[in-house]
Design a protein around this nucleic acid. Structure first.
Lengths: 210, 210
DNA sequence: TGTACATCAGTGAACGCGCGTTCACTGATGTAC
DNA sequence: TGTACATCAGTGAACGCGCGTTCACTGATGTAC
């Protein structure tokens, strides 16, 4: 059942997106190749025709998720204009993002699992984290905190990842506290970053569909 | 093969500690009851005589790990004296703690996995996180950041958990960067917390054995 | 443009394996008398 | 204190199941002529 080159590429893309979403939702150890293949509308044999192992798929799905995140972030801004810290916070750290783990950042979804996975996966994580720190650093303003721009960027990125993970972990048993964590992390990262404008400490409103 | 009450209690304790360590090292989904029982010197049948399911064991092991952490933290200080923020940072966020995932805090080791586990596990996490925020809040000093004590305590606790997870995720592929993350998180959480003394921004030295 | 055929993405049965859990049984403990 | 026996923590074989991976096969694609 050979298919066109275009179909093959589309199937690969579908596998990567489906795998990325399921890995974020259920963890890398928490979902199998059968379920990924099924939700992608293929068999596991097709998956193995495109990827040598589940681990390789996981590494590529992580990279794909990071790439898509960066693309969405920059595309959201009018061309030529760089995103500010508030844009990053709205994109990354909100109740809406917390509730959409399947569609959100793979670093936050899988942070504590990465160290247990193969080195290929860790390398993708490190690349994504480094890139995010660089982007955040470029968006920093003045801050009352006596630290270098790089130190502040690292702290903000790690705090966003940790804040999301903690907000998700507490959500079922104490939803109000989970909301409080999100709000506190938005406020504190904004203050450290130097964008003390109150506009981004409130939740961003839902954008129109489509 | 009935054993004494004391032996039963000791076996339960061994199971909890062994399970806690293995869950931290390999993740809750990453280790089975056979391995836990074996390393505890028992059979899986003994495990099921003490705990109704793996999930219940995981919830109790998480609670036990948190309890032990708090006990160690307060015992480290002379009786009557409360730990300061620097003590928490030394206890929680350092290269040494990063390298000893099996012996460290279960919240940092499993942060992103908790949301996927049963509600009983999430409830234990929430209790531990709330208690930690309370303890950190009591240890805060003056800060240049314009936020409430509670907001600062939440941010520091989430940042320590996120910082540790990120430092571990990046360690294999970029050890120097991992060290830099730990140092930046120590410095930034110290500044936010209001303990700007340089003494705790450097790594604590190894305590004497025994 | 039309025909012959090599390619190879995708199918689905099968593999060995380890998972969480159950259960009939064991035998020292600890209680009742 | 000594004897009889119920208790129950722990043993180990067995269960059904889903895991990641392999492989003989299929058949439309896309190339060679």
């Amino acid at each position: 059942v050979k298919v066109t080159k275009e179909q093959t590429a589309a199937n690969r893309e579908t596998l990567l997106r489906t795998a990325g979403r399921l890995f974020r939702e259920h963890g890398i150890d928490g979902v199998g190749v059968a379920e990924i293949s099924k939700q992608a509308g293929l068999t596991h044999g097709a998956l193995y025709a495109q990827f040598p192992s589940k681990e390789a798929l996981a590494a590529e799905a992580l990279a794909e998720g990071l790439r898509r995140g960066f693309a969405r972030m920059t595309a959201a801004k009018a061309s030529g204009e760089l995103p500010g810290l508030g844009d990053y916070l709205d994109f990354y750290l909100s109740n809406r993002v917390r509730d959409d783990i399947g569609g959100s950042c793979p670093m936050a979804a899988s942070a504590s699992e990465i160290a247990r996975q193969d080195e290929a996966i860790g390398a993708r994580f490190t690349a994504g984290f480094t890139a995010t720190v660089g982007a955040i650093e470029a968006a920093l303003g003045d801050s009352p905190v006596d630290a270098t721009r790089r130190e502040r960027a690292i702290a903000i990125t790690a705090a966003m990842i940790g804040g999301l993970a903690v907000a998700r972990a507490t959500q079922k048993s104490d939803p109000a506290f989970s909301d409080e964590i999100v709000a506190a992390m938005r406020k504190m990262t904004g203050l450290i970053g130097g964008e003390a404008d109150a506009s981004f400490t409130a939740e961003p409103s839902l954008p129109a569909r489509g």
